[in-house]
Design a protein around this nucleic acid. Structure first.
Lengths: 196, 196
DNA sequence: ACCCGACGATACCGATCGGTATCAACTGGG
DNA sequence: CCCAGTTGATACCGATCGGTATCGTCGGGT
């Protein structure tokens, strides 16, 4: 809710909070949560540690906010899939698969940030972990709705199958055990949508 | 600290190196690599930090050795699947899927150690990471051989599909987005083996 | 009985971590 | 123009980390 201070000094400089979240996003994705110190985030955000603690109570809260934003981005992909193909759940599901497949080159060998973050958050009461689990549960619900609307047989089982494939594709792409992950994933999803 | 004396080992105490590896296995699986200190491993192994450094040059080497042993365990599951169902590749693949499905309750909300460790090892040159990638590549090769031997159509694509499902099942079980993961996974694998 | 290597215990090192205190410089709104 | 609030810079704290040094003890071969 901070105002849009749109008067940069020389170069377009975002407000500190945005720069911090951007820097955190890049570093957490590239190196993981635990390996990235608050000092390193401050330097990449061209600010100081103190500025970070003015906007976030703890590092854990910064992590949580990062994942909240990331989850919102993924939910936005769901929204877009529904908006782009209204009333055509098969196209919606395929658009989601394409969203994942297209994102593979970007995450490259570092994999899905949600999966990675879960590995670093063994505490089930950790707020960041709850953000991830809530997001995944919501994603399952929406996918289930699409499968049911598409008239696919056994929507629960089909939802599980699509979810496994999407998650597994990202993992296999990360560890390099499978080549051509994107095209292969799309072929599998299409095959699921074609059987009825 | 709940030390949970789960096994008093009334019989002769194992040699220090075994106790260290056992302790490391439990702690790394439960809390991840970075969050577990060498001191904590020593305490659970009922020894000292010095003893650990007498058997392992660094903590990274201990991590690597743990993953080497774990990878060997998984390869042993492949061996067992082949030995138990000689000349019947479909049964072999199904046995592997059962092996993964049966392991789900044990890993529970902490997920697959390979996937988790990969998240904590962003350095591609890290020896532990190379152990994982080599293991996954080998696993893909053996699965590909089974698919080809089973006469499944497009063995490469089928291998990718089975791999995605196995990995994705573990991830989804970890984040709790899908229920009844084990039975669902087995149904999917059976469906793949039945289509020809 | 001897001895040598392995083991246990403890204290310590430098580095780094998350988080805080303090104060100067700047900036925009009244 | 002026002041209040935000920001930047630096120094610091206690805790914990991976790793080392030291020394006393123990046990099993020969």
């Amino acid at each position: 809710m901070t105002t849009t201070a749109r008067r940069p000094t020389r170069v377009a400089k975002l407000p500190p909070r945005e720069r911090i979240l951007d820097a955190a996003e890049e570093l957490f994705q590239a190196e993981g949560i635990a390996r990235v110190g608050v000092q390193a985030i401050a330097e990449r955000a061209r600010t100081t540690k103190m500025a970070i603690y003015r906007h976030f109570e703890t590092k854990d809260e910064l992590v949580t906010e990062w994942l909240r934003i990331l989850a919102a981005d993924y939910q936005a992909a769901f929204d877009r899939a529904e908006a782009d193909h209204p009333g055509r759940p098969r196209e919606q599901i395929l658009a989601l698969a394409r969203f994942i497949a297209d994102g593979l080159p970007e995450i490259s060998y570092r994999g899905c940030p949600f999966i990675n973050s879960l590995a670093e958050l063994p505490d089930r009461e950790h707020p960041a972990r709850q953000v991830i689990e809530r997001h995944k549960a919501l994603q399952t619900d929406r996918l289930l709705g699409m499968c049911a609307a598409a008239g696919l047989p056994d929507p629960q089982q089909t939802t599980a199958e699509i979810t496994f494939l999407l998650e597994g594709a990202q993992v296999s792409h990360q560890n390099g055990s499978i080549g051509q992950v994107g095209p292969r994933l799309l072929r599998m999803i299409e095959a699921i949508l074609d059987r009825r």
